[in-house]
Amino acid sequence: MSTLEPGTDLPPQEYVVTRADLVAYAAASGDDNPIHQDEEIARAVGLPGVIAHGMYTLALAARAVQEWAGGPGRVEQVGAKFTKPVVVPAGDEGTTVRVAGTVKSVADGRATLALTVTCGEDKVLGMPTAVLRV
């Protein structure tokens, strides 16, 4: 991370998300809202299908940041708005979330990253940001 400079594009990360991942995440996080697991319930509340927890997508963004940081424990801030749902179809293929990042600024041993988190053509997180110790 010591070579990070403002304007640096970080290598985009792509992560496959399946319904099995969401079931595992529900158990691990305690967020067992059925819209993240059950197609019928998701459609009944007007969603296009089972959607990932917003926090699941944010966890993937943090996973990319950890990858770029070269290891865990260096994140000082991470956050986003949950602007569009990530629809996860049944089956092993799931869907793919892509996390791209650019170094916005480096100062006082900290790098501020601007992230772009997409699923297909949709930006699924609004104003996703992260600050790292470098």
Binding site: A28, S29, M55, A59, R63, P72, V75
Partner: peptide, 29 residues
């Protein structure tokens, strides 16, 4: 608990590592 959270999100994690960054959501939730 950390291993389950890391596995669900695909985050590389070793026992000596700190928890994934968004792990505190379990408490905040």
């Amino acid at each position: 608990r950390v291993a389950a959270f890391a596995a669900a999100t695909g985050t590389p994690w070793d026992e000596a590592d700190p928890a994934p960054a968004t792990f505190p959501i379990v408490v905040a939730f």
